[in-house]
Computed example of a mutant assay.
Amino acid sequence: MTSAVTDLEPLERRTLGETIYGQLSELLISGRLAPGERLSLRDSAAVLGVSVMPVREAVSRLVADGALEVAPNRAVRVPVMTASGFRELADTRMAIEGLAAARAARHRTPAHLGVLRRAEAAFRALADEEEFDPALSVELNRDLHFAVYDACGLPTLRSIIAGLWLKAGPVINLDLRASPRRIQLGHARHRHAEALAAIEAGDAAAAEAAIAGDIDQAASFIIARGVLPITA
């Protein structure tokens, strides 16, 4: 007699692939993989203590997402984005992430507000320091943005935003580490404060404008600076 258990898909390997995908995604979003940097499947597998197969599966997903690419020599690398491509990505993010911020102003819960307030306070405290850890600024900036997107009430929209950050993260966060002046100018701090105030007040239009403005100012600063990974 055949057991129904035989129809189950193997969970262990699928879970492992998801875990590796999540870890590689975090490297991209946090800017720890730079534009043009190669990713060795074999080395990654060795560090993770797994076989190459689940790493290859995770990388294939990221290639399909447009977060990684396969070079003509078959090497896997982080794409090098042009200035026009980065501007296009920023404009898309302004529309999508602005929508999420607007919805967050309408649908946030007291729990969401608590997380967002703590994230804004942590980023503001760091930005006010004369000397700060650029890597920590990357982490706190991401935490604040995704606190907003978690509050929008649409998991599908949040997933789309995460996909956009896979592409933007290496450029944005590499620049943030290389150019602390962007934080010191206070643009992000002011926009974040505006977003928090708007979401607290339930002002959807102001929340959308604050997040879109934050993305726009960061993109304009990066492009104007001529940061190396972005070619004209």
Rank of each mutant, 00 (worst) to 15 (best):
A119C: 12
A58P: 00
L116D: 02
V148W: 08
G186T: 00
S51M: 05
D175F: 15
A121T: 06
S179F: 12
F123H: 14
F146T: 01
I183V: 15
I160P: 00
Y21I: 08
L28D: 02
A195L: 02
V47K: 06
S84N: 06
R56D: 15
D143E: 13
I211K: 10
T156S: 15
G186H: 00
R56A: 15
A67R: 04
L164A: 01
G98S: 06
C152W: 00
L164E: 11
P72S: 09
V52S: 06
S40F: 04
T2V: 14
A111R: 12
H112K: 07
R189D: 01
I20W: 04
L136H: 02
T92R: 12
H107C: 13
G85N: 02
G17N: 07
E9Y: 13
R61E: 07
E208T: 09
A111I: 10
P35M: 02
F86S: 02
F132K: 02
D133S: 12
F123I: 07
E69K: 12
A201P: 01
S60H: 09
G114A: 10
D91N: 12
T15G: 13
F123W: 04
Y21W: 15
A201H: 05
A204K: 04
L157F: 07
V63K: 00
L28F: 03
D65G: 09
F221K: 06
A102Y: 11
L185V: 11
P134A: 09
S51I: 04
P79T: 05
A198E: 08
L24G: 01
L27Y: 11
L48F: 09
D65P: 05
R189T: 13
H107L: 14
R93L: 09
A205I: 03
S179Y: 09
A101E: 01
A83C: 07
R56P: 06
V80C: 11
Q217A: 14
A224V: 04
G98Q: 03
E9A: 12
A102G: 15
E26W: 15
L68C: 04
L196W: 02
G186K: 00
S3A: 13
D43C: 05
A119K: 06
S137M: 11
S60A: 11
I20S: 03
A125V: 05
A204P: 01
R118P: 03
A4V: 14
S159P: 08
G163H: 10
L39N: 01
R77A: 11
G153A: 07
L68I: 05
S30W: 10
L166T: 10
A101H: 01
E139V: 13
L154Q: 13
V78P: 00
A135G: 09
S220M: 12
N173D: 07
P134C: 06
A122L: 07
G226R: 13
V115L: 13
V55L: 08
V70L: 09
A212I: 09
A46R: 14
L140Y: 01
E130S: 13
A206D: 04
S30N: 08
T92M: 10
V63P: 00
L8C: 10
I230P: 03
A102V: 09
R181H: 10
A219I: 03
A162W: 10
P72R: 06
A147F: 02
D175P: 03
F221M: 11
G66W: 02
V50E: 10
A4P: 12
I223G: 00
A207R: 01
W165M: 13
S51Y: 03
W165D: 14
R117A: 10
V47C: 01
E37F: 04
L136E: 15
A135I: 12
D43W: 07
L28A: 03
A119P: 05
